[in-house]
Design a protein around this nucleic acid. Structure first.
Lengths: 210, 210
DNA sequence: GTCTATAGCATGATAGAC
DNA sequence: GTCTATCATGCTATAGAC
């Protein structure tokens, strides 16, 4: 293939991996894991099928590497967003709902990742571990928020963190299904109301009979 | 196939459809849409491949029929749960989180349905319409709750309904990834706190400066 | 390491007997 | 309507030249 040679000539040999991963993201997203053929992925990357097997060994492993790459980027992004502190962290998540739910590729890849993970124990562990990392970061953010404002929520930090990420994913899903039903800021507003309600309940529990 | 004839002999010809749908649910769940072969589905149902094509016309249509069947059942179940009124309705959703997220088949079918829907516009509309039906029922429940308790939440009924279902799906996801992190009753407790917080905010907005 | 070519197999769908 | 048998195609993965 002339195009293959042209593209390979431009980048170094080490770059083939990145080109392949990007092409894999495109094709896996659009066709699904089983629907994607290594031929098409290689074609989209401008390399040959042989390259895939020499670098990744198998189609399954290529997908796995892709998953890991995306999860790493995701975790970094969340942590960076959280660095601004509790309020900034919430706003960052709000933006993430809008952005990731608007991106077609991200939507399709997330769906494919989830379906594969539910079917394959090894991938499931990988994803669970990732979610756990995000929730640890969220829990740290909650702790910091308590320290700064003095508010107590009456539930363990971990449980609140689980609620924060669950609501996040739930709103992503909703946005993807019907974008108009999730206005910007909804995530933040909801979390604010939830925190307030939890704090109220906690205060009420301290005064039995009330 | 001896077994095929045996099973067909037991049920009427009209039953073939149901048997096929059940087998399809099993195989589509375990292998994914593309990974499932019509041969295996026919085998699991105890009929021949020809039956599938005479009754459903194509593999894609078989999956579509399966989707519709499950969505109808789901909607009926939700509406039945809501019939008990606001408190009972919440408890029903809480039970649904535990049950559907524990069922392997439901988990895998939901994942496959979602992935297919995101990729295929026709299926996406189908799923969006279903979700809309559930949310209408939820909005009616919210209206009823307001009427009975007199509480105002400061947000439109539809928006609150969207939050209820989004949180539901988010917690289902979380439960499926890490069952231990979603104790029974978490959904109800969270919604209670959220309602309380929203009502507080609404009351606060009526008294600017507070 | 990357190419081309191909092996070896599974797939969705159809034809025609009954 | 359901069966069996088959077609045409597409697939993952490998072999061997360079």
């Amino acid at each position: 293939m002339a195009e293959a040679r042209r593209r390979r000539a431009r980048g170094g040999a080490a770059r083939t991996r990145e080109v392949l991963l990007q092409a894999a993201a495109e094709v896996f997203a659009e066709r699904g894991y089983d629907g994607a053929s290594v031929d098409e992925i290689a074609g989209a990357a401008g390399v040959s099928v042989g390259s895939i097997y020499s670098r990744f060994g198998s189609k399954r492993n290529l997908f796995r590497q892709l998953m890991t790459q995306y999860m790493e980027r995701d975790l970094i992004r969340v942590r960076d967003g959280f660095a601004a502190g509790p309020e900034g962290g919430l706003r960052a998540l709000d933006d993430l709902v809008q952005e990731t739910a608007t991106s077609r590729r991200q939507t399709l890849l997330d769906a494919e990742t989830w379906a594969s993970a539910m079917r394959t124990p090894a991938l499931r562990s990988l994803l669970a571990e990732h979610e756990n990392g995000v929730q640890s970061a969220a829990a740290a953010l909650v702790r910091r928020g308590r320290a700064e404002t003095g508010h107590e929520f009456g539930v363990p930090d971990d449980e609140l963190a689980v609620l924060l990420t669950s609501l996040f994913h739930g709103l992503c899903r909703q946005h993807r299904l019907d974008p108009g039903s999730v206005p910007p800021g909804l995530y933040t507003r909801t979390v604010t109301a939830l925190s307030r309600g939890l704090a109220e309940q906690a205060a009420g529990a301290d005064r039995p009979g009330h």
